[in-house]
Structure formats: C-alpha cells, structure tokens
Design a protein around this nucleic acid. Structure first.
Lengths: 191, 191, 191, 191
DNA sequence: TCCTAAGCGAGACGGTACGTCTTGTCTTCCA
DNA sequence: TGGAAGACAAGACGTACCGTCTCGCTTAGGA
C-alpha cells in the first residue's frame, strides 16, 4: 500500500475541511453553518467528511489541537528569548498573530464548545503551575477560586479584545491585565 | 373584549411554557431540547407555543426579562435594609435563592445566547454606574478594559459557583470576589 | 323566550354565511377557501360559524337544499304553464337564471361533494319516473344503465355549459341534449 | 457518476410510493390519506417523498402518466389483432384488467383532480379524431357539444361500472354504450 | 323598567398535517 | 481502494387550518 501518498492526501483533505470551516465561521458564524456548506466550500464529498470527522464539532475541535500545538512552539521560543518571560503576554501575542483563526475559534462567531475546550485546556496548565506560586494559607482565598477568577478574566479580556478589534497591542493588553490582577492576588495570598 | 380573562389565560400558558423549559434544561440541557419536548411537558398545543414565542430562544430569553425584574426588586430591598449595600453581594444572594432558575438560564446546561444576554444587561448597568467611581486618569487603564475585566471575572465566578455547587455562601463568594478585584482596581485607577 | 327575534337573527347569520361562501367560491374556488375566509367575509365570529354548521361542507350542502327547494317551485310553474312540459328544459332554465349560484355549487370551482349530492338527488327523481317510460324488455339495455347514461350526459353538458359560458340558450341546450339521447333510448328500449 | 445504480434506486422508490398510494386509496379514500400514511406504508423517509414529488397530488398524477402509457400499448395491440377495432371496447377492457388501479385513480375514492386529468386527456384524443367522423353540417349540433356529450356519458358509465362492480363484461358495457349513443349521433350529424 | 336567556364577537387553545431543512448512513461507481 | 456523488431514513422545524372552548357584550321579550 502506498502509505505515504495516502497520508498526504488525507492530510490535504483534512486541511481543506479545516480551512473551509474557518472561512465560513468568519463569514456567517458557526451556528449557521451546515455540513453541506462545509463540503461545498471544501469541494469534498459528503461521505468524505464523515470519514474524517464524526461531526461539525469534531472538525472544529480538531482546530483546537492544532492551535495548542503551535502555541506550545510559540511559548518555547518566548521563554528562550526573553529575560522576563510572561505566559500571559505570550498568549496575547500568539492570538494577535493568528487573529482570524482565533476569532473563528474563540470569538463570538465561534462555538461555545470551542470556548469551553479552550478554557479546560488553560485551566489544566494553570492547575499544574499555580499551587507553586500560590501556596495555601489560612484565611486566604482558596486557590481554585483564584484560578477561576484569573481564568475568566483572562479569557474575557482576550476574547473581547479579538472580537471588537480593540486597538491596543498585545503588550498593552497583557500589561493592563497584570496590573489589574496582581495587587489583588498578592493581597489575598500574602506574597 | 374579554381582556381580563384572556390575559389570565395567556399568562398561565406562558408560565407553563417557561416552567417546562426550565425543568427540561436542568434535565438534559438546552441544546438537546426540542419544541415538542417543551409543549409535551407544558401540555400545550404546538400552535399555541408559536402564538406566544417565535422560537425556543425567544422563550428562553423571555426568562431573562423575568429574572431581571425580580432582581430589580431584590436590589431595592437590599439597598433599603443595609448599612453598606453591595450590589455584588445582592447578585450572589439573588442567584442563591433561585439556584435552579439561574442554573437553567446561565449555567452550562443553558444556552450561550442566554449568557450573552445576561452579560449585555449587566454591562449596561455597569456602564451607567462605573464612570462615577472610576474617573478617567492619564496613564490609567481605560475604563472599558476595567469593566470587561470586572464583568468577566464576576460572571465567571458566579456561573462556576452555581454549576459546580461549590459549598461557599453567597456572602463568602462576594467577599472573595471583592478581595480579589479591589486592590487592582484601586492601584490602577488611583483611588 | 324571544323566539321570533332569535329566529330572525339566526336566519340572517346563515344567509350571511351562505352568501360569503358563494362569493368566495366564485373568487378562488371552494378548495382554497378556509373557514377563516368565510367568517371574515361574513363578519361573523368563529364560534358562530360552528354553532350553525359542522363544516365547510355542511354549509355548502345546505346550499343544495335551498337550490332544490327553488327548483321544485320552478318545475311546478313550468309544468303549469306549458303545453309540452320538459323537465330537462326546466333544469337548463333554472340554472340559467341562477348562473352564479349554479357555477359556485356545481361548477369546476365548486366541490366534488356538491356535484355528488346533486347527482344523487337527480338520480332519485329519475328512479321514480323512468321505469314508467322505459319498461323492461328482453334484450334491452337494463334501465339502470340507461339511467346512468342519461344522468352523466345531462350533468356533463349542464356543467360544461355553465363553466365555459357557452353561448347557447337554455332552450338550445335542452333541444340538443334531447336530439342526442332520444334516438338511442328509443332504439334500445323499443319505444 | 453512478448513474445506473442511482436510477434503479430512484425507480424503486417511486414505485414503492405509487403502490402505497394506490393501496391506501382503496382502503380509505384519497382525501383521508396523509403524506405520513404514504411514507409509512412505503417505508420511505419524509424528505425522500418530497425529493420525488411536490405533493400528494403530484404523486397521484404521476399515476395517470403511467396509466396512459400502458393504455397506448393496449390500444395498439387491440387495433393490430381485431378485424373491427373499437376504442371504446379497448378502454373498457383496459380498465377491466387493471380494475384496482382504475378504481383507485378514477373511482369515487380517488380524487377529483385525477378524474379531471383523465377527462382532459381523453378529450384531447377525441379532438384529434372526431372532426373526421362528424363533419360540421348546417343545423347540426356543434361538434364540441357532441363531444362533451360522448365524453361525459362514456366516463360516467365507466366509473359507475367500476365503482359498483356492476356484473357486466367489458364487451357488454361497450356494446350498450354504443347502442345508446350511435342512433343519436347518426341522426344529429346525418351519417 | 329592569331581568334574563339566547345569539353572538373575539380569540386562545389543542391538535394535526404540511412542506422544508439538516443530519449521519449507505451504496455504487470511478480514478 | 479511497474518495466523490448523492439517495436515503430520521426527525425537528415553523406554518396553516381545524373544531372546541370560554368569556363578556348585546338585545329583546316577559316580569
């Protein structure tokens, strides 16, 4: 079996479908898209679509994996090249450089299921890193509360910034976010 | 015209439909509900449903109006009876006393469209009140950024608290939220 | 109980409904008419309609009774005033003088149920009169066959004449019909 | 494109639908049948029905085309095999051999729209053939009147014979019909 | 003159069928 | 042998009518 060639074709088809989905989301919003729209745009047969993805949602979420992969790379470069690396800044920068993709996936034209997946992933990362910075203290706010707080405010600002094309740079957004959260977190966790 | 009797019947039917929707959301989530489910539960004819609401969404959003109305009342009582009234606390309390309704409308089984509506409403209230407390200053974070920050973190914590039945009281939640945001807002806006 | 006045009102309402139906049939055909159309045109409440008739069909068929009644009168006058009375001619004349009513009830914009009722009624009259003129003979066509033949051809010509506003007089139509059927009937029944 | 296989499937589906309709008409009459009844009986999806026919009426009328096609064949065989071919006899024979189909389509359980279509088709055939046999003469009955007369009486007798399962053979019916009409037509058109 | 019963309008309602739309499965052919 | 074409079953959608119903208003005899 010519495995290499097959792989190439499979990859191509998947790419066509993903691209079509992103375009269509930006044009009319995830909810108004039908599978028919996608396969027409990708110029692919109906059965082909279902051979690769179980769902419209499945196709969408496959985009999340892709995004996460490129974000990892971006993070590594960021940490390698900076004296004071800041993951929040890295996130805003990454989003800025792939605005359309981010808007399609996380923005208001995107799908709730996508935002939920994004949230879960970031939460997982946070759960690994946070306890180290925010040791539990008597009388302090529980770590999980602080984490939901940080998560919601970060995602809220990020999506708002993207959706409305707010004219601040990634650096400005990250800076403002930090200035808003740091004092409270310090006060509450006594660091 | 027999307006009074007709009004009474109309009100009753709408109430049946709203109640049925809330029950069903809590049972299986908004997205999996069909109009047929709703009218079966409410024991109402299909055409009757469409005589009152254009949509499943329309019915859902009518619940938001209702909620907003009862919240107004709650707020007034709260401000009348307290030495140091706190709108955030009032919100957590109101949600606590109508947990099921709030979970159905704003929770993860509810609909995105509902959360968006809720967000818009709260934003409007904030837009009227905030500028007074957060006067614009050179070098400060723009008010709109602070507002999105406060909005996202408040809604994020509220929905997380409801959805997961996190065992803190409304008072504790409001207190933790305030402790997390106040220092940052003070620092940034110099008050 | 104020019976007289009540009767008057009832009669008026029924008349309004019948008139509305006939008008609407001529305008857009029986099948495309809804009960709502009728009561709007008659300016009558929905429940009033159903208080008087069970159905659109019921209202329609009530017109048949009315028609039959006026036809009876017409026949009597016809027989009283003519040396050689001819029921076929009487029928064409009666239809001619109430063209609109006939067209609405029996024509192509009318209803099948109406034509069937008309056919049944005429058949009943024929069944009482025919055997006298067409005594059963060996080898002859059975009376019932002849009767269906006469019935179909009479109604067919009558409706065709009305629906297409064919420019022959009632007298001419009756005459042609007679000239077409008499020789055959005479030959077959040996009279 | 897999045209052959698709064609086969399409034909099969249409056949299933037609068969289901005929069965249902004979069971409960055209008017009482719903599209749901038809697709349940044919074991076909709702959308499939509407992919092939716009309507219940459309499906019904497609049966007329089918009938006309088989009638053409029957006529040719009849004319080829007989010394004195008679179209009227051919019609009665054809109906006799497909009694159920004819009863469903043209009978009293069928639809008015079907009978109207049948009438129109036969009229068209007659219009091509009649003038040749019935040349216009002064004082004679106009050809169109004679034609409506022949059409109504033929269809009337045919449908009556089918609907009531009248125990005469096709030959007897054709013979009686001819004996009833020929003398009149001869007398009137002087042939 | 008031009372009261019937006829009536208005229109909400439960129910049923419609024709449309989308989904995910399947079969068949083609490259 | 994988992908394209597209027929198909399933079932929800929003619309259109139907026949039932409840409610007050009007009206004209009989008290």
């Amino acid at each position: 079996m010519p495995a290499a060639a097959t792989d190439r074709r499979v990859r191509r088809t998947r790419e066509l479908l993903r691209r079509a989905l992103v375009e269509l989301i930006l044009e009319k919003g995830y909810d108004r898209i039908t599978v028919q729209d996608i396969i027409d745009r990708a110029d692919v047969g109906r059965s082909t679509f279902y051979a690769h993805y179980t769902d419209k949602d499945d196709l969408l979420l496959s985009g999340l994996e892709e995004l996460a992969a490129t974000f990892e790379e971006h993070m590594e470069r960021h940490f390698a090249s900076r004296a004071e690396p800041n993951p929040v800044l890295a996130a805003f920068q990454h989003a800025d450089r792939q605005r359309d993709l981010y808007k399609a996936l996380a923005g208001k034209r995107g799908a709730e299921v996508m935002r939920a997946g994004l949230r879960r992933r970031i939460r997982e990362v946070m759960m690994r890193r946070m306890p180290e910075f925010l040791p539990h203290r008597d009388g302090a706010v529980p770590v999980e509360v602080t984490m939901e707080f940080l998560l919601s405010s970060l995602l809220g600002l990020l999506v708002w910034w993207l959706d409305n094309d707010v004219p601040y740079t990634a650096e400005e957004m990250a800076d403002m976010y930090m200035r808003l959260i740091v004092p409270g977190v310090k006060a509450v966790h006594g660091i």
